[in-house]
Design a protein around this nucleic acid. Structure first.
Lengths: 214, 214
DNA sequence: ATTTAAATAAAACATTTGTTTAAAACAAGT
DNA sequence: ACTTGTTTTAAACAAATGTTTTATTTAAAT
């Protein structure tokens, strides 16, 4: 097959353009997650992506902008479907169960994400708090209403919804931020850590539901 | 009073020597807590401490060593009395109550500590995990035994002590790592955040105790 | 085939970094 | 008064940083 039709040809060309840009994002994402913004140099990104240093400034205008792009991508990908669960019309118990399960599964797939977010949150709070995508990370409007209505129905104890949501988030997310310490102390391998985390799904659920009982 | 006796004189001299060293630690601690290791330059430390740049290398041999010194100091100060509570012979409920209370009070006094620890933990896990002082931060030997014995006595449900301790730690510490997001979302002032946190003392206690009930 | 615009590369730029060197200031002991 | 050792200062160093400039290659359009 020696002939390429127009579309294939265009695709190949575009492929290259997108490739470099994509490669930059890909490499930079890994490095930012692993080592953070400050310890990652643009030369390191370029080297990992096998491109010239100046291409980073050609596609993204600065390291800072590249970073912001990646923050958005990372949080967007991770948090979208979680928000959906939280805002769904599932019953309270089932919603909590699914939220915990999905959140933990996501964090097992992205074990560095929580520490990354905490780092960004401390380095430049505004950078994260002004993002629309951050809304997915912590917005309890609908969940709050649900908790209040369940209380009115006498199904659960009176509870501060904000506190309750933070409890849920804490129980889910914190172990990932403390991962190294947990692993060191218990001599966990990566695999064992994941097992430890999966064990938590039910425990967290029980802890939360038990507290809600009237 | 024009005369100073030997001891006073010696004190004054020493005071100066200690002062510079102390001033370096003091300034560096604040900066490391606020901005982290990488974004804090030795010139900034020197400028804040009002000393010459090279004095940092004179007293501590490198920025890295100064940093390790400060990590030790920070964690040591903060965690010692907490470990005492956890290892004391208080009854389970009272111990949990006091641990939560003391821990939260400490973190209110050191609101940047958790994020600092998480940052170090990700930057160089070994640096933290090899420190003796880290033991105070996460050692559950005695607490584990207590939980097991209470279970044998039929006082509490069967529970994985490691998981339970992590739950306690998560509920206490995580909100401090997410502080900026919590404040932004709820329009909290610094003061309101502290109120929010104090509210948690009882809630965390109830959450944990409720889960333990047989 | 020539022109035009986009993509890549190499080199240079100006700062900033942690650290070292060499000299000065200082206090104490002889 | 002189020497000794300690503390402080100023200057310099080499390496690394993010970014820009300039030149070259590449592909598409005329």
């Amino acid at each position: 097959m020696f002939y390429l039709n127009c579309i294939d040809f265009y695709t190949i060309i575009m492929q290259n353009k997108i490739d470099t840009q994509e490669k930059i994002v890909q490499s930079a994402t890994e490095l930012f997650l692993e080592k953070g913004y400050d310890r990652t140099s643009v030369r390191e990104i370029a080297s990992k992506a096998k491109i010239n240093v100046s291409l980073m400034n050609y596609y993204f205008r600065s390291k800072e902008i590249l970073f912001e792009t990646i923050i958005n991508l990372l949080i967007g990908k991770a948090s979208g479907s979680l928000k959906d669960v939280l805002d769904s019309d599932l019953g309270l118990n089932e919603k909590i169960r699914q939220y915990i399960c999905k959140y933990i599964d996501m964090l097992i797939s992205n074990p560095l994400l929580i520490s990354f977010i905490v780092a960004v949150l401390n380095r430049n709070p505004e950078k994260l708090t002004r993002l629309k995508v951050t809304d997915n990370l912590y917005n309890t409007e609908i969940f709050t209403k649900q908790l209040e209505e369940e209380y009115k129905k006498g199904k659960i104890k009176k509870v501060n919804p904000e506190q309750f949501y933070i409890n849920m988030l804490s129980l889910i997310a914190f172990p990932f931020a403390f991962k190294h310490l947990i692993n060191k102390k218990n001599n966990f391998s990566q695999k064992e850590f994941n097992e430890f985390i999966k064990e938590r799904k039910e425990m967290i659920y029980n802890t939360l539901i038990c507290y809600l009982k009237p």
